[in-house]
Design a protein around this nucleic acid. Structure first.
Lengths: 234, 234
DNA sequence: TGGCTCGAGATCGCATACAATCCAAAAACA
DNA sequence: TGTTTTTGGATTGTATGCGATCTCGAGCCA
């Protein structure tokens, strides 16, 4: 978009998701004005938009602050995410193009490779390769569902948890299960089985919900089933 | 709220829902400025908010217009509504207070009475009594679900169809079914049966989706199963 | 006559000035 | 010394001015 307002929106959103502002922190308009290099008007519009998307909360005459998310709220959000994404998967099963399915296979392969490599090297960070592939995987399915409103709802529940900078700490067996979910989803799509796809996605999200932990949580001593910190995996 | 911005939001929203602006009509900021008695800034904020809620669409440098909804979009919306409200009913089953259930019974009774009266008098309009009771019925359930984000999503799909000024044209048997759904829902709540409540609500919405027609549709000759035009019934 | 270009008017986007509100620290009082 | 009041600064809310962009019709050319 060519509008300055959209620019401010993206900038502020990025700042929040990068953790430059922590949950609960107050966002002063003038401060953002400096950071974004635009005037207050577009900053205000961006804040209003972010508020409706749930990333910030704003109280009249008191300004905006980054949304705080409690444990129960996080569970609520994951429940909604399971609802939305499973619905999307169901719709996608009837509509997704063969080329899109092919792309899903590539992505699934990339994730498997990334995990295998991380396990081999015993390294704890495979964020980038895994999560970017994972995001695209989910995005493709959401697009295939072909329901703009559903997409809008998805961003509502997918992005908000990110402000917590939550990491999913997956055990090796959990990781493996997640990878199998991806493959099973693809099979369900190829079978054009709405119900199957929907069910697998529901499992996938519910399983992910079990693995989210707070970033300040210390990396505990590894169990024999070694835990892998990741970005959001679900 | 004390802010002028919120006032403008409510005013514009009311104008749209009243049909004072028809779908596709352009909303000029200055025009709204006059109608609301405030300056352009709060009007702009209101329009931005309405855009995110789906009531208006706005394109850069071209202003806002009331959202237009096609037939397929309407079906999409009802599918989402079924998803959202059935989920809400499920959550509500586990949480709803007994006092709220009591209130639901009263409302169900009122709707039954309204329908019975309308059928007796062969009158075609029972909008007000029925629809207000119906709205409260659904609102209570949504509140009992105790999930703010879910509520937000609900307004997204409940309000948008209203700009079409759609009427549900229910046959007497369909009306009867709807009333039975209400009672069945209440029973499911009393049984604290999540799955039952969810399923009934899904039926309720899907059935409603079948009965929505455009307002400009002429009132066809009544079948032997006499059709009752109503507001949104589902 | 039909299509294209260009320009005037209208409208929007952004910046800025002013007013209303809130918060916190200091002062006054019990 | 503890509590209330007041007052100043900071911050948000609202109005308005200016420049940018778009729309649409008149005029021009083929």
């Amino acid at each position: 978009m060519s509008t300055v307002s959209a620019l401010a929106y993206k900038a502020i959103r990025a700042l929040i998701l990068e953790g430059r502002f922590i949950p609960g922190e107050r966002l002063k308009e003038e401060e953002l004005t400096d950071l974004c290099g635009v005037s207050r008007t577009p900053v205000r519009e961006a804040l209003r938009r972010l508020a409706l998307e749930g990333l910030v909360v704003l109280t009249p005459h008191q300004g905006a602050q980054v949304a705080e998310i409690g444990e129960v709220e996080l569970q609520e959000i994951y429940a909604l995410r399971a609802m939305i994404e499973s619905h999307a998967a169901g719709r996608a099963a009837k509509r997704i193009a063969l080329s899109a399915i092919a792309r899903l296979k590539v992505l699934a392969g990339q994730m498997e490779e990334a995990v295998a490599q991380a396990v081999r090297r015993r390294q704890t960070k495979l964020y980038e390769r895994y999560t970017s592939a994972n995001s695209e995987f989910h995005r493709i399915i959401m697009e295939a569902a072909d329901s703009p409103r559903l997409s809008a709802m998805a961003t509502l529940v997918v992005e908000v948890p990110l402000i917590l900078r939550t990491l999913a700490r997956y055990s090796e067996s959990e990781l493996s299960r997640s990878l199998h979910h991806h493959r099973e989803l693809i099979e369900a799509f190829e079978a054009r089985d709405e119900d199957w796809a929907s069910s697998v996605m529901r499992c996938h999200i519910r399983a992910a919900a079990q693995a989210v932990v707070r970033p300040e949580g210390e990396p505990e001593a590894a169990q024999n089933d070694q835990a892998q910190p990741l970005g959001l995996v679900g």
